[in-house]
């Protein structure tokens, strides 16, 4: 008997006639016994729909299918989790970022997206003001931080702050041109004024510790903050004169706010004069700046006088004029200093 023959004979055992079959009587007897046992132990409770579905799924979805699907499904889930998880991580990192950080542009882009999805100029202004307070908070964090990145961060922060103040001012102008001052706008203007005051304070503290080059940026941010603040005060003055809106900001609060700005301007004039005396500039440049400073002083005196007289509307216009002159003088001196100083350290 060779191997093939043996194979054939083994296969032939399957053939009932030639092979091994159980005794028919035993088969029937055992069948009966088993069915009796099955019948006795058959659960009486009906099977729930969910359990039926599970049985069907387990029985008719072959494990091979599940195994074949497992790979692609897991891969897809991994890709999705990385994509979504990555996005969440990026957003989270961006939320905590400061100017000069890798993720800060993402934060700004997210803010722009939120602005794009906001309808209504007043709502946009409110949202932008919210972002502005965030910018100020960033600047404070940078000011209190240490490290090699600090000078670059301060510069970047000042630039962004200036840009945001300018945007807010533009938005304030647009809103006031389109409609009369209402409760929401007055509230927003109050917040902008407060942010402007806080920003000026922060920038003033920061200025002495930065390089001449960064000082130019800080000075520009200061100017933007003052201009926006004055514009906000103008709106508050209008709101104050409107019936039923006096509770937004009292007369004393407005006066105090303007006095703060006047005092800020006076300090700026004093600092500019001091810097000018310390700078060995040419006679022509020096005399130009001196003229600007004198004009600013005159404008400031006039503003103070109007404030004392309680002419708030005129005060804000005069204050804007003073800001313009002081800014020009200060910028001239700072730029001249920046051009003569090597910007090596903050």
């Amino acid at each position: 008997m060779n191997k093939q023959e043996m194979k054939k004979r083994l296969e032939a055992i399957r053939n009932i006639k030639r092979g091994i079959t159980p005794d028919a009587a035993w088969v029937l007897r055992t069948r009966g016994i088993l069915l009796m046992q099955v019948g006795n132990s058959m659960p009486a409770a009906s099977v729930s729909l969910w359990a039926r579905w599970r049985v069907v799924a387990r029985a008719f979805l072959p494990s091979q299918w599940l195994a074949a699907l497992r790979g692609p499904v897991l891969a897809a889930l991994s890709v999705l989790s990385v994509a979504f998880g990555g996005s969440i991580a990026t957003v989270s990192a961006a939320e905590r970022s400061l100017p000069g950080d890798f993720f800060h542009p993402v934060k700004l882009a997210m803010e722009q997206t939120r602005l794009a999805f906001t309808s209504g100029k007043k709502d946009k202004l409110q949202l932008k003001t919210e972002f502005l307070t965030g910018r100020l908070q960033e600047m404070r964090e940078i000011a209190s931080s240490e490290g090699v990145k600090r000078p670059a961060r301060i510069k970047a922060s000042a630039e962004i702050l200036k840009r945001d103040f300018d945007t807010v001012k533009t938005q304030l102008n647009e809103v006031t041109h389109q409609e009369s001052v209402g409760q929401q706008l007055a509230e927003t203007a109050k917040l902008i004024d407060q942010t402007s005051v806080d920003a000026l304070e922060a920038l003033k503290q920061l200025k002495p510790s930065v390089s001449a080059e960064t000082q130019v940026k800080v000075a520009e941010a200061e100017v933007a903050a003052v201009n926006t603040g004055v514009k906000a005060v103008q709106i508050l003055v209008v709101a104050h004169d409107t019936p039923n809106m006096k509770e937004v900001m009292s007369n004393e609060e407005i006066v105090r706010s303007i006095q703060g700005k006047v005092q800020g301007m006076a300090d700026n004039i004093s600092n500019t004069s001091k810097k000018l005396s310390e700078t060995s500039t040419s006679n022509t440049s020096s005399s130009t700046v001196l003229t600007q400073i004198n004009t600013a002083k005159e404008s400031l005196t006039q503003t103070k006088q109007l404030l004392e007289e309680g002419k708030l509307t005129e005060v804000t216009a005069a204050l804007l004029e003073t800001v313009k002159v002081v800014t020009t003088a200060e910028k001239t001196v700072v730029e001249f200093n920046a051009s003569t100083t090597i910007p090596s350290s903050p």
């Binding site: 088969v27 069948r31 088993l34 069915l35 659960p43 099977v47 359990a51 049985v55």
Partner: peptide
């Protein structure tokens, strides 16, 4: 499993007993 059909078990028995 779901219909508690004893005859289903009987069929399975008949199919595989041999």
């Amino acid at each position: 499993r779901t219909k508690h059909d004893e005859q289903a078990f009987a069929s399975l028995y008949d199919r595989y007993v041999t």
